[in-house]
Design a protein around this nucleic acid. Sequence first.
DNA 1: TAGTGGTCTAGACCACCTT
DNA 2: AGGTGGTCTAGACCACTAG
Lengths: 255, 255
Amino acid sequence: MTSKSKTSNGKASKPDKLKRAPGKPLYDQVGEIARKRLINNYWKPGEILPSEFTLAAELSVSQGTVRKALNHMVTENLLERRQGKGTFVSEHTERRALFLYFNLKSKDGEQAMPFSRTLACELRPATEIERTKLKLEHGAGVVAMHRVRELQGRPVIVERLTLPQELFPGLGSGLELPENLYRFYQAEYGITVAKASEQVSAVAAEALEAQFLGIMPETPLLEIDRVAVTIDSRPVEWRVSRCSTSHHTYVAERG
Amino acid sequence: MTSKSKTSNGKASKPDKLKRAPGKPLYDQVGEIARKRLINNYWKPGEILPSEFTLAAELSVSQGTVRKALNHMVTENLLERRQGKGTFVSEHTERRALFLYFNLKSKDGEQAMPFSRTLACELRPATEIERTKLKLEHGAGVVAMHRVRELQGRPVIVERLTLPQELFPGLGSGLELPENLYRFYQAEYGITVAKASEQVSAVAAEALEAQFLGIMPETPLLEIDRVAVTIDSRPVEWRVSRCSTSHHTYVAERG
DNA sequence: TAGTGGTCTAGACCACCTT
DNA sequence: AGGTGGTCTAGACCACTAG
């Protein structure tokens, strides 16, 4: 082991030339290196990447191979390309929060911005279901929050959020939470939500929920159970939203 | 107009050479031609396409340009590629129906096949809401059907389907409907569903629905309102499914 | 062995942005 | 003018499938 370089850690420490590996296209290897650089924050949100030619030279592949790898990451919303300027690491902007991670639309066609009030925030040990959802060890702690979210001035969502305490040190000490949480996670804790899985079902409103939403108890609500994960699939947030669907619907495209 | 050929109709009648157009990449033009050939059934479901080189020669572009156009259509599930064999027009298989267009999963992890019983089927003029959903003219007729669908032997979904009569001549004359409707539309009527938009909300079970599902009236149900469209975005089917979510949830991936 | 799609390269030119 | 990503080409070689 005379070489100091490592091709596998994603650092820019003069990686060895990439070699064709059986069943492993070069562009996948380029993609893995790029992913690692995002994961370990060597490339940070909002920053510009080296040009395709620079990366190609660094990794001893052609520009077209780098291009294919980066384009794939663009389809995953990890990178953004701007002609004439360069390739940038995606940030959690307002637009992204709304289009990618907020799927309640008004039945009257309007896409409304939610406004949230945080009701409570506590630190405590994870329950069993929380450990399962967030893949936590026995004894791990969580930050648990409650919110009510309004659309067009009307309370529409009551929400319970659970985060691994370990990933968010200091969170929960009576501070005002911003509207765009994923941007907050990214900016304050270096944690980037890359995708989320949702399970949707119908439930009856409990007494307290009904009060917050200004509806009758037992009214049918849409329950969205979401686990958000990082690029490397580590769970970051468990969120259960209960939504009044009298004026809004949850939308999805299929196929 | 001395030339008999038309580059715009998607037929294989010796199209003119494609030319670079401002703001219109060649691969988009190739994609448009390929789409038209799918739309007018010049290339039929299950059939093999000419090889990349053949298409490239026909359209006077390079193989790489054809490749880019076809790959994009693969991501839209319009085509399938099989190494060493060729490129094929997608069919509505069992797999596709389940993975792309059936999004209720058992909470116990099992992915169950639905089993459907058709309760009623009638021909009648479209209502106003049906005309809106299916983009029909005043006075147009529809085929309206009712189904109950079971998962693991348990009735879980009551479903109302509405189709434009014009697109499905002869449908509704007391025939048994198959489980995979989209394959049926494709095989019997040459109509291919390419994608669908869904609006999900929570509703209370009506008396009759409750009876069919073996639950109490007023139980919260998940309502999925889906409009399915063809490659060229013409509405084909409006489907409203009301689902009991005691043992199943609707799943979606975001980001 | 021949044909197909899949990978990779090298180079040309274009469109856009910055200086 | 120079740098960036975007398009397009041409050609080489590989992997898989078929007859």
